[in-house]
Amino acid sequence: MENKKGWIGKLLMEFVSVVFAVLLALGLNHWREANNDQKLAERALVNIFMEIYTNQKDVAEEQLTYQERLEEVKVYKDSYDQDKPMKYSLGFNIPLLSNAAWNVANSTGAIKDFDQDILLELSSLYAFQEMYQKNGIEYMQHMNTVEFKKSENAKAIIDSNYGQLRTFENWSQILSDAYLEFIKTYGPQYQELLPDSVLVE
C-alpha cells in the first residue's frame, strides 16, 4: 500500500512538474511576443515621428509660398476690382506629404500597441493631412481645365485663386501647428529613440 502511495506521489509530482514547465514555456513565449510587439510599435512610432517632422518642414515652407503668391494675386485682384485689369500669372502648389510610416504601422498591426491617446491624435492628424492634400490636388486639376483658362472668366479665376491661396495658407498653419503639437506632447516619451533635432522645445 505504501509503495502504491509513493508511486502515486511521484506520478503526481511529475505531472505537476510537466504542467509547470509547459505553463512556464507558454508564459515566456507570450512575454517574448509581447516584447516583440512592443518593439515593433516603438519602431513604428519613431518612423511616424520622423515622417511628421519632415511633413511639418514641407508644410511650413509651402505656407511661405502661399503668402508670397497671395501678395502677387492681390495685385491682380485689385486691378480687376478697380476695372484696370492687368496681365496675370496664377499658380498653385501642394506639398507632397508622406503617410508611408502611418500606412506601414496600420498594415503591420503595430498600431494595436500604441497608446490610445497617441492613436487618436495620429488618426485625426493623418485624416486632416489627407483632406489637405486631396483638396489641393483637386484644385490644381481644376486649374488645368479649359473653363478655368477662358479670358472672359479672368476676374472669377483670380478671385478663385486668391480664395484658394488664403484657405491653404490657413490650413497650412493649422496642419503645421498640429504636427508640432503632436511632437511636443508625445515626443518626450520617446526622446531616447528620437534624434534631438526632432524634439520641440
Rank of each mutant, 00 (worst) to 15 (best):
A25R: 01
A25I: 10
A25V: 14
A25M: 08
G27A: 11
H30D: 08
R32P: 01
E33K: 11
E33G: 00
N35D: 12
K39E: 14
K39Q: 13
L40F: 03
L40N: 15
A41N: 08
A41E: 06
A41G: 11
A41T: 07
E42Q: 14
R43K: 09
R43T: 13
R43W: 00
R43I: 06
A44E: 02
L45V: 00
V46I: 12
N47S: 13
I48A: 01
E51W: 03
I52C: 04
I52H: 04
T54S: 12
T54I: 07
D58N: 13
D58M: 13
V59R: 11
V59G: 09
V59Y: 04
A60P: 04
E61G: 03
E62L: 10
E62V: 05
E62K: 08
L64P: 00
L64W: 08
L64D: 11
Y66M: 09
E68M: 12
R69Y: 08
R69I: 05
L70S: 07
V73I: 15
K77E: 10
S79C: 03
D81T: 03
Q82F: 00
D83T: 07
D83C: 05
K84V: 11
K84G: 04
P85R: 00
K87N: 15
Y88S: 05
S89A: 11
G91C: 00
F92S: 05
N93K: 14
